[in-house]
Simulated assay, not measured.
Amino acid sequence: MDISIFIPVYKQSDQVESMLKVLCSQNVSKEIFVTVDAPTDEFCNKLEHLKAEGVKFIINRERTGKTNALNNTVKMSSGGVLLFLDSDVGIPDNPDYLRKIVMKMEHTDVLDIKKRVIKDKSFLSKMAYYEYLTFNISSWIASRFMHKCPAVNGAAFAIKREMFDKVNGFRKVVAEDIDIATRAFLKEGKFSYSHDVEVDNVVHGNWKKWFVQRRRWAIGQALWLKDWYKELARRFVNKPQVFLPSLFFLYPSATVFFLSAIVPSLWMYNSLLVFSLFLSVKFNIALPIFLVSLATADILKVLLISLAGFGITATVFYGFSRKLGFRELKIHELFVYYFFYSTVWMAIIVFGHIQVLFGKKAGPDWKT
């Protein structure tokens, strides 16, 4: 068997039918497992019409948790390549889709599949478009310069069975995708990013669902960092030129806060002093401007750093958007993403880390 595909579903999915239609038409030796936790009656009825050759449905009437469901299903499979797909992704209708993945897996242990958000009219879909662009940029950098990566986006990725067995499968953690990628990374597993194989991601247009999901991501990330920070710190010291740019792309607002903290305010004070003296010579109005300048120097410093950071980010994002095929970049949307969305997301991350420090061990609405 060339490849085994795993699609975990919680309660129901609107995308599974179209996913199976594409996957079943692929011209490779394959097996497909759809594991459903706590399905709704409506979805159970729908499954009766989705049965196809090579597709196995595992129905768990009670919620067993994603990691349990996947680990148990992998034991039933026989493929040399294991492909994990979330039940809310779209797959291009290309008969060679799986064959490309199998071919890429001949040269790597872990493959992060390109993920793109289809924009609709919702604000969150537009912001997630740029967020997922940062995920892709970070994966491309790691693949290009290290051929290893301690993280993967679990919406769509593949791993060799040998590596999956070597790291003992998924652990019962909130961020099971990042965790298994980290363990493969520490086992010296090779990592690649697929530029020409992709999935489309459906994002929450509802703020409440988005907030619950992001809280879970933040807590999962904090728990992951708590488990692995020592080992990752050692690798970071050896390859800071790779890790730092990835952190910049993933958390642009953090860069502004960091630079604002380390850049001396005295530089701004001195610059404003020179400007004030210039005004006094020219217009004899130095004193009031000088007083105002001292009071607002810190604000001006943050403003200048923020605008300079945005200019650099916009330039770099534009270049990568062309390279990676993200052609829908709009400067006003990126501006909102940079100054508003990423700041809100960073605040949620900080809050999640604080919760973990005080003993939080699970994300909201999640079972490992």
Rank of each mutant, 00 (worst) to 15 (best):
residue 327 R to S: 11
residue 181 A to K: 13
residue 262 I to K: 11
residue 27 N to F: 01
residue 36 V to K: 03
residue 212 V to M: 11
residue 45 N to F: 01
residue 153 N to C: 14
residue 101 I to E: 01
residue 253 S to Y: 11
residue 133 L to W: 00
residue 131 E to F: 10
residue 355 Q to C: 11
residue 117 V to A: 08
residue 98 L to V: 09
residue 119 K to M: 08
residue 265 S to N: 15
residue 16 V to H: 00
residue 352 G to H: 02
residue 337 Y to T: 02
residue 213 Q to P: 00
residue 160 K to D: 07
residue 113 I to M: 05
residue 44 C to G: 10
residue 16 V to Y: 07
residue 132 Y to P: 01
residue 126 K to P: 02
residue 23 L to C: 05
residue 298 D to G: 08
residue 324 L to F: 03
residue 309 G to L: 12
residue 281 V to N: 13
residue 53 E to Y: 06
residue 318 Y to M: 04
residue 154 G to V: 09
residue 214 R to H: 15
residue 229 Y to E: 10
residue 84 F to V: 08
residue 344 V to T: 06
residue 170 F to M: 13
residue 21 K to Q: 15
residue 174 V to A: 15
residue 37 D to G: 05
residue 168 N to D: 08
residue 130 Y to H: 15
residue 195 H to S: 14
residue 262 I to F: 06
residue 141 I to N: 13
residue 353 H to D: 02
residue 292 V to F: 09
residue 299 I to C: 05
residue 41 D to S: 13
residue 308 A to T: 15
residue 79 G to D: 11
residue 281 V to H: 13
residue 259 L to E: 10
residue 11 K to N: 12
residue 4 S to L: 01
residue 40 T to L: 08
residue 188 E to M: 04
residue 22 V to W: 14
residue 85 L to Q: 10
residue 167 V to L: 08
residue 194 S to F: 00
residue 366 W to E: 12
residue 317 F to D: 03
